[in-house]
Write a protein that binds this DNA or RNA. Structure first.
Lengths: 150, 150
DNA sequence: TCCGACACCTGAAGCGCTTCAAGTCAAACC
DNA sequence: GGTTTGACTTGAAGCGCTTCAGGTGTCGGA
């Protein structure tokens, strides 16, 4: 009789990991550092069971995390969430600021992508023994690097 | 008489950090784990001095690192580099693979960005008490999340 | 000549996970 | 009924840095 009293919609750590994109180890870690409160357990096995409320919270954290938000930022989000509509303006600002940061990051990454592609071209030209193409790739690499900012 | 015998083009760790985008601590760390070989020192002060050859190497690593390459990948790159043209095909493949990975990452990040912006809209609508706008933002958030892959 | 100020040094600890080692629980096969 | 399989548990160690604590070397000014 396994976990008869559990709700059907409760997720195992494996399911929670699959749905959220967090590794199982990360879910355990987040619980340990207090981001998730205490997650319910199956009484007999001691395995974690993620109910709907926790699951939703995990989903939201997953989005924020994959958008580059730090653990500190996620804590802030949860604090604001607890305040509800009273903290709506702060929430808006939190998301807007994170969006701007991410937009800037993406722009930089696109430069890095161009760099990598030109480097691939460069070595390809070398494989083919095409000195002219190699020279052009070198110039393109240089041009891209000049646009890097740190 | 500070470091009279040093070459003028040698960089301090601070300059190297500024030019490469690595933190000074990261430069020390990379040296410790053997990514940079042994960096020369100013004899009297014991401070690191990055000569042109090392500086170029650091620059290249910086590009790779900021394009998402792992330390393992960077080691591989340095190995191949030592082989010169003999490993040109492997270098091309290394860069091409890294480029593909990064392109996929960027695509995901653009979704996260859309998510963040819609979330900001959502809270903004709530601040303004605009239920219709809020409802629309909720739908947009949902639509974006459905396109997430992990 | 002494005094900060500052850049740098090393070694150790912390962070956000990830990986690993050793063990528990439950369904399933022989 | 044992035993294997597989998902799960905890605690500890590792990774790639980052931060911190405590100290050294160099310089410019009083």
């Amino acid at each position: 009789m396994p976990a008869t009293r559990q709700h059907a919609e409760d997720l195992t750590i494996q399911e929670m990991a699959r749905r959220s994109g967090f590794a199982e180890s990360t879910l355990r870690y987040y619980e340990k550092i207090g981001l998730l409160g205490r997650v319910a357990r199956d009484e007999s096995s001691g395995h974690r069971r993620y109910g709907p409320a926790v699951a939703e919270r995990v989903q939201a954290l997953s989005c924020l995390r994959s958008a580059g938000m730090t653990v500190t930022g996620m804590r802030r989000y949860l604090e604001l969430l607890a305040l509800g509509d009273a903290a709506a303006a702060e929430q808006r600002d939190l998301f807007a600021a994170q969006a701007e940061t991410l937009a800037a990051d993406i722009e930089q990454l696109q430069l890095r992508l161009a760099y990598l592609r030109h480097k691939a071209e460069l070595w390809d030209a070398r494989v083919r023994g095409d000195a002219a193409a190699e020279q052009q790739a070198v110039e393109e690499v240089t041009r891209v690097i000049d646009r890097f900012t740190y």
